[in-house]
């Protein structure tokens, strides 16, 4: 069975191109990586193609975009050739996505309880009442103190941190084998962020699944992920174990690290990143 294999996702030489009026823009160029049962961080500045990469895996790129790859294999599914129908059955069930603002992922006219129950009914084929009980249990699992009250709230009535917990609670039911989290905590305060991340951490470790964590926050990725992919201008410039990030070789990664103000290593002037055109040559 595919589930027992250690590699969940393999991406080989993936490119994403956008045709524009003035020619084709390549947002992602020849990106290759694998994701196993681990937390992989994709780090990069705005426009580095990190979010586009995450969306292309889910086949959620904008319609005009062209995705090319030698291979995109998710467990037993070839993502290049899978039909749209197959993709629909994969999204949310086998690959789940958490976005920065959970409000866009939730249906605004249904209470959060109804939405989670729907997932329960879909996956476990139980009655309404059982689904409700399961939902309440799941809300409790993600540290929501009074699930009965939260059950009847609409997405606009919950805070950002609560919204992300609700997204995670849906994953507890759907049991995906890969989670793609795109800046899931950038809008959250540090204390809430810590709580959401620890729930996510437990989910990934407990279920032994894979996580792609897309972020611009070096410190966060370094401390949360096992492995880090550094992207620059649509390319992967370096892949390194999170613990070894300080020994990163690529001048871009080094530049980013040195540009960061730090409580532990204060410096009078921050280093300014000098962008080298040579980084754009693969």
């Amino acid at each position: 069975m595919a589930n027992t294999s250690d590699t969940i996702l393999t991406v080989e030489n993936m490119s994403v191109e956008f045709p524009t009026l003035s020619g084709v823009t390549t947002a992602v160029r020849d990106v290759s990586f694998t994701v196993g049962r681990e937390k992989v961080g994709i780090i990069g500045e705005s426009g580095s193609g990190k979010s586009t990469t995450g969306r292309a895996i889910m086949r959620l790129q904008p319609p005009q975009a062209i995705v090319k790859a030698n291979r995109m294999q998710f467990e037993d599914v070839d993502l290049m050739t899978a039909s749209e129908e197959e993709m629909r059955s994969i999204r949310g069930r086998r690959i789940a996505m958490i976005l920065q603002d959970p409000k866009y992922s939730l249906n605004p006219v249904m209470t959060v309880g109804e939405q989670i129950s729907e997932t329960v009914i879909l996956h476990e084929r139980v009655t309404q009442q059982e689904a409700r009980n399961r939902t309440l249990a799941m809300l409790e699992r993600v540290n929501i103190r009074d699930p009965e009250r939260v059950f009847d709230l609409y997405p606009h009535e919950v805070s950002g941190g609560m919204g992300q917990r609700i997204m995670i609670s849906m994953m507890l039911i759907a049991q995906p084998s890969l989670i793609i989290a795109d800046e899931p905590t950038s809008a959250l305060d540090v204390t809430v962020r810590q709580q959401v991340l620890s729930i996510l951490d437990d989910l990934v470790v407990e279920r032994n699944i894979g996580l792609i964590f897309i972020s611009h926050d070096l410190n966060l990725v370094r401390s949360f992920c096992d492995r880090v992919i550094i992207m620059y201008a649509g390319r992967v410039v370096e892949t390194i174990a999170a613990a070894d990030l300080d020994q990163a070789q690529h001048p871009y990664t080094r530049g980013l690290l040195n540009a960061l103000p730090s409580l532990d290593r204060p410096k009078d002037r921050l280093e300014v990143l000098r962008r080298d055109p040579a980084w754009l040559e693969n």
């Binding site: 699992r141 993600v142 540290n143 540090v190 204390t191 962020r193 810590q194 991340l197 620890s198 729930i199 951490d201 437990d202 470790v205 407990e206 926050d217 410190n219 966060l220 990725v221 370094r222 401390s223 949360f224 409580l263 532990d264």
Partner: peptide
């Protein structure tokens, strides 16, 4: 807040009793 600026602080993983 200082810990927050350093990143994520891993909690010891002991199942959901910890949660």
């Amino acid at each position: 807040l200082m810990d927050g600026s350093r990143g994520y602080v891993a909690t010891t993983r002991q199942g959901h009793s910890q949660l």
